[in-house]
Structures are given as C-alpha cells and as structure tokens.
C-alpha cells in the first residue's frame, strides 16, 4: 500500500509539473514521466497487459508524436499570442466547473469503500482477451470502426490538395 501512495504522490507531482513548466518540451517530458507512473500502478494491480499497452501506445507512440510536433513549431515567448482577460476569466470559470463536476461524481461514487478485485488474474492477456472477444465483442468492434473512420478522415484531410502539388 505504501508503494501505491508513493507512486500516486509522484503521479500528482509530475502532473503539476506538466502545467507549471515554462518550456513546452519540458512539460511533455514530465507528461511522459506521469504516464510512466501510471504504468507502475497497472503493474501493482497485476494488470500486465494494460501496463505494457499503456507503455507502448502512450509513452512510445502518442507522446513521441507530441514531442515531434512541439520540436517542429517554434515556441518563442514573443511569438506567443497575448490572450485577453475575458478569455482568462472564461478559462478559470470553465476549469472550476469541471472541478466541481469531478468532485461531485467522486462523492457520489463513494470511494471510501475500496473495490476488492474478485479475480487477481483478471488483467492477464488470456483472461482479458476472453472477456473482450466474448462479453464485450460489440462495443470492441464499434470502437475499432470509430478509429478506422477517424483514420480515413485524417488521410482525406491530408491529401485534400493533391491536384495542386502533384
């Protein structure tokens, strides 16, 4: 349990550093560390497959793309657009509302009763695959269709002006 609290503390620390870091590349690096602490949490829950997939997909692919994009665009202090005060107030209000919603939902959930894992081997590949392809087959296939359509859309957007460039 103490390992859990230590890792949870690290997650929150790195998450705070993500938004407080001045340099956008540094904040992506902190985000990578945050995701790494999530991977450790999954391992502590004996969910090896989720842990390694989180590792490959988030740390290995998505954040590499984030870093890639941030390195390409020049993020200088002077190039940064100055935001008006109205926008800042709207942002604070929006964020506050979101916080209230999250706290309310956490209270409604009653997290004081810890969830006891029925089957400690639930997160292993074998069991996960059986559940995913039997019980949750339809949602699984629908979500993969959703991803496919998003992919086709992205390819369409990228090749829109094919005639002009050749």
């Amino acid at each position: 349990m103490s390992i859990f609290y230590f890792i949870a503390f690290l997650s929150i620390l790195f998450a705070v550093l993500v938004i407080s870091a001045k340099n956008p590349v540094h904040s992506i690096l902190y985000l990578i560390l945050t995701f790494f602490t999530f991977t450790i949490q999954y391992i502590l829950l004996n969910a090896q497959f989720l842990a390694i997939v989180n590792f490959i997909v988030y740390m290995g692919a998505i954040l590499v793309l984030f870093l890639y994009t941030l390195m390409l665009i020049n993020l200088n202090k002077d190039a940064e657009p100055v935001k008006s005060n109205m926008l800042k107030i709207a942002g604070v209000l929006g964020g506050g509302c979101f916080l209230v919603v999250i706290i309310a939902s956490l209270k409604a959930l009653g997290v004081s009763q810890p969830v006891v894992l029925q089957n400690p081997g639930l997160g292993l590949v074998k069991n996960l695959g059986k559940v995913l392809f039997n019980e949750f087959l339809l949602p699984f296939e629908v979500s993969s269709l959703l991803l496919l359509s998003a992919m086709v859309g992205a390819v369409l957007l990228a090749t829109r002006d094919k005639k002009t460039t050749v």
Partner: peptide
Amino acid sequence: LYIFGVVS
C-alpha cells in the same frame, strides 16, 4: 510486448 515497449 515488453520488447516492443523498450524499442519504442
């Protein structure tokens, strides 16, 4: 998958 994680 571990190998893939390390590679990525």
